[in-house]
Write a protein that binds this DNA or RNA. Structure first.
Length: 419
RNA sequence: GUGGAUGUAGCUCAGCUGGCAGAGCACCGGGUUGUGGCCCCGGUUGUCGUGGGUUCAAGUCCCAUCAUCCACCCCA
């Protein structure tokens, strides 16, 4: 049997409704906050991600779907959306018209990781990006947006964890302090951290190995080494969060896996999915636009893990089925012929109507109507064709009333409106 | 990339020291010649993940491989 590719999955009818529900909530929220949808390609030149995300990151080093196309150009299935959105911002010269742009996008991303719960090779993200705004207000707006979205989706425990990663001004000094600290207790760290300590020392801070946690307990924190500008920025983010009544955890060990992040950084975790606990994350990336060839422009954004979010939402709310309003049980070829035409006419009038196409017994058709969850069943056979009145059965009350066939649409609309 | 567990009907799973491939649910039909849910009766559904090996005989034992799940790792 031909099967789908490892780490990929089908989203089947029944589950799709849940995805649509989440999308609808996100779109409505983004619309109200002035975020406009942007759709960028799934394929980009490899260079965009190599430069944007960082050559040394795990994503670029070993997780991207990168290949040569037929002319030998190196292209990559996008592992995230921010780099593409920033590329579009620069390419279409948004900064020249109005540097302030707020975008959102929803779509698939690709990373070749080992599949696991809530982790697929084609996975979906909801992204929001605010470009051209340096003020801490917009950091807070994005965190607020994230919290509101999760509230609307009835996700409990959606408390954001926040931190500041500083900027190119304050990070070197912190890096020195951290390296010095790590050097003193290198032997106590796990093998991974010993390797990390030279390449990406910030990662040692959020290692989960108990020995490392212990050794790093008193490690210097980034927020104690912020330059005055970053310190003020972060203080304002915290103050505004508090004024909005958004509870948050200050997590001095929170770091990011992508090189472009600066200043405010945030994540939302949940216990619902085991180890794949991060359901959303984001932060400020003030250097990225310039790095990708645009003018110096601040930026901040987040990504929500759609697959993970859908699994969490499904835990409390998983029935999004939309049963037909009416089932037409037709008996005999003559009735079936008119039923077929009614179904189309009623659909045209905005009513979801189902019928049986195979000419099963009335009993079988009633069973099917029940299983589909139809509120009403219209029973039409030779008798009804002669008298011009069909029987309309209310499945909940079992009451049956005659309905004139020539006034069918109006009667049904009335009856269904009252349900 | 590393470690562990699991693959048998559409779904959930049973199948002992190797001996005729099963149950429940679902689906189809009947009990009721034109009336659903509950009940009763009957029926359909299989590359036992795949490929090799051992054996008179393999769902069962061995090897390989693929996939899924869990954890590490990484991240959303």
């Amino acid at each position: 049997m031909l099967q789908l590719i490892r780490g990929f999955k089908d989203i089947l009818p029944g589950e799709v409704e849940l995805w649509q529900h989440i999308e609808n909530q996100a779109r409505a929220l983004f619309h109200d906050f002035g975020y406009r949808e942007i759709r960028v390609p799934l394929l980009e030149k490899t260079e965009l991600f190599a430069r944007g995300i960082g050559e040394d990151t795990d994503i670029v080093e070993k997780e991207m779907y990168t290949f040569a196309d037929r002319k030998g150009e190196m292209i990559t299935l996008r592992p995230e959306a921010t780099a593409s959105i920033v590329r579009a911002y620069i390419q279409h010269r948004f900064h020249a018209v109005d540097p302030v742009q707020k975008f959102f996008t929803i779509g698939p991303m690709f990373r070749r990781e080992r599949p696991q719960k809530g982790r697929y090779r084609q996975f979906y993200q909801i992204n929001a990006e605010a470009l051209g705004i340096a003020e801490p207000m917009i950091d807070v707006q994005l965190i607020h947006l994230l919290v509101r979205l999760l509230q609307r989706l009835k996700v409990a425990d959606a408390t954001p964890h926040i931190n500041s990663l500083g900027c190119p001004v304050c990070r070197p000094a912190f890096r020195e302090a951290l390296l010095a600290f790590i050097a003193e207790r290198r032997d106590a760290l796990c093998a991974d951290c010993q390797r990390r300590s030279t390449r990406n020392p910030m990662r040692v801070l959020d290692c989960k190995v108990p020995g490392c946690r212990e050794a790093m307990a008193d490690a210097p924190a980034i927020i104690d080494h912020l330059c005055p500008a970053c310190a003020v920025h972060f203080a304002m983010v915290r103050e505004k969060l508090e004024r909005l009544g958004i509870t948050y955890h200050l997590d001095k060990r929170l770091v990011r896996g992508l090189d472009y992040y600066t200043r405010t950084t945030f994540e939302i975790h949940t216990a619902a999915l085991g180890a794949q606990s991060a359901v959303a994350g984001g932060g400020r990336y003030d250097g990225l636009i310039e790095l990708l060839g645009g003018p110096p422009t601040p930026g901040v954004g987040f990504a929500v893990g759609f697959d993970r979010l859908a699994e969490i939402v499904a835990l409390q709310q998983n029935d999004f089925s939309r049963p037909p309003r009416l089932f037409i049980a037709a008996l005999g070829p003559a009735a079936q012929t008119v039923a077929f035409e009614w179904q189309m006419a009623l659909a045209e009038a905005g009513l979801h109507v189902e019928m049986d196409y195979a000419g099963h017994s009335l009993k079988a058709q009633m069973k099917r109507a029940d299983r589909l969850g139809a509120a009403l069943v219209l029973i039409v056979g030779d008798n009804e064709m002669k008298t011009g009145e069909a029987m309309l059965r209310d499945m909940a009350t079992r009451e049956q009333t005659p309905v004139a066939l020539d006034r069918l649409v109006e009667t049904l609309r009335q009856r269904l409106a009252n349900l």
